[in-house]
């Protein structure tokens, strides 16, 4: 027993003592989104030791930063509305465009955005959309409406998976009803509540991590899903079609932000600059199958990714960003969500 204890504690101290290097970069990133090869390439090019931790939702990023992790990471990758929230919370550092030599590579449409006017703390990373996919072996009718999810035809009832996040699910429901996001209007909120309450009986499950697998396995015939995730499901053999509903769909953009109290600010900026190189941005796109917010990536993209139907919405469709609601309205949406899952 004693000997075992000794060995274990020795091994333990050997582990804690390891990994001491001069140049470091600490990334807080979404789950499985960036290829390890790209991180290795950066580490090699700049002689920096890169470590990456992952989170599974914008909200859990916020929660752990708030609980005390601010100060241990250099960069994070929040979605659009979360950039604004983090900024309001005072969790972001700012930089000058002159500090990034590739700043001019940012696509014009993403150079000045509502959630970070003038791109003072963030650079665009990847963007995509949230909508739903339908298994074409099960249903061959038209899928151009969110009614497929919220008022499904007979053959799809009980075969629907929806994302387990209130923001995306309730925003799509609002689009279906044609009511504005973050509305404080009682009648509209009651209608929203009634819609999801009524639709729930037709839903088989709530799940975000499983959104792809249920479509591939055929457990669900309709799945609310992110565009790149749907492309992956398709490449794994699911006969599905990603819908761009006429009522609208969600567009989101993930952004690399410079965190406040970053222990390695210099390396963070080097990394952000590195990600603005078209070749590197394209590497992420090829991996995650979303769309880069950087000019000149086209020559580096794999054709299957560049031409994927999920990333090329038909002209004239409207995608909207999820809005960050003010507190007094957000509690109402939280109440609707809790009510839905009680």
């Amino acid at each position: 027993m004693k000997k075992l204890l000794m060995t274990a504690s020795l091994a333990f101290f050997a582990l804690t003592g390891a990994a001491q290097a001069e140049g470091k970069l600490s990334i807080y990133h979404w789950f499985e989104y960036i290829p390890q090869e790209l991180l290795d390439k950066f580490a090699k090019e700049y002689d920096v030791e890169v470590t990456m931790d992952t989170y599974d939702s914008n909200e859990s990023l916020l929660a752990s930063l708030k609980a005390g992790k601010l100060g241990s990471y250099d960069v994070a990758v929040p979605g659009d509305y979360m950039v604004k929230i983090l900024n309001n919370e005072g969790m972001l550092d700012t930089f000058e465009p002159s500090e990034l030599s590739n700043f001019g590579n940012i696509e014009d449409q993403w150079a000045d955005v509502s959630f970070d006017p003038g791109r003072k703390s963030s650079i665009p990373y990847q963007w995509g959309s949230t909508s739903f996919s339908v298994n074409r072996d099960v249903f061959s009718g038209p899928i151009d409406s969110l009614a497929i999810v919220f008022d499904p035809p007979e053959e799809l009832k009980g075969k629907i998976n929806v994302l387990d996040t209130s923001g995306e699910t309730l925003t799509l429901a609002s689009l279906y009803l044609g009511i504005p996001q973050c509305t404080p209007d009682k009648a509209q909120l009651k209608a929203l509540n009634a819609l999801v309450q009524g639709a729930k009986q037709h839903w088989a499950s709530f799940g975000s991590d499983i959104a792809k697998d249920v479509l591939v396995s055929g457990d669900a015939a309709v799945g609310m899903i992110w565009s790149g995730f749907s492309a992956k499901a398709r490449s794994e053999g699911a006969n599905i079609e990603y819908a761009f509903p006429k009522e609208g769909y969600i567009v989101w953009m993930d952004n690399v932000v410079l965190l406040k109290d970053a222990p390695n600010r210099e390396n963070a900026l080097k990394f952000m600059n590195f990600l603005l190189e078209p070749e590197n941005a394209a590497a992420v796109t090829n991996y995650a199958q979303y769309t880069a917010g950087v000019k000149g990536v086209a020559p580096f993209l794999e054709p299957a990714v560049a031409n994927s139907p999920e990333s090329n919405p038909p002209a004239g469709q409207k995608g909207v960003f999820v809005e960050a609601c003010p507190q007094e309205v957000q509690v109402l949406y939280d109440a609707i969500w809790t009510n839905l899952k009680k």
Binding site: E59, A63, T165, S166, A204, F206, G207, I210, Y333, D334
Partner: peptide
């Protein structure tokens, strides 16, 4: 979540939602 389809909150997911979800 995985076997029950997460259609209804359990104590664990309710509490988790307060810390890690949008409810905050």
């Amino acid at each position: 979540d995985l076997l029950g389809g997460a259609k209804t909150f359990m104590i664990g997911s309710l509490i988790e939602e307060q810390f890690k979800g949008s409810a905050g």
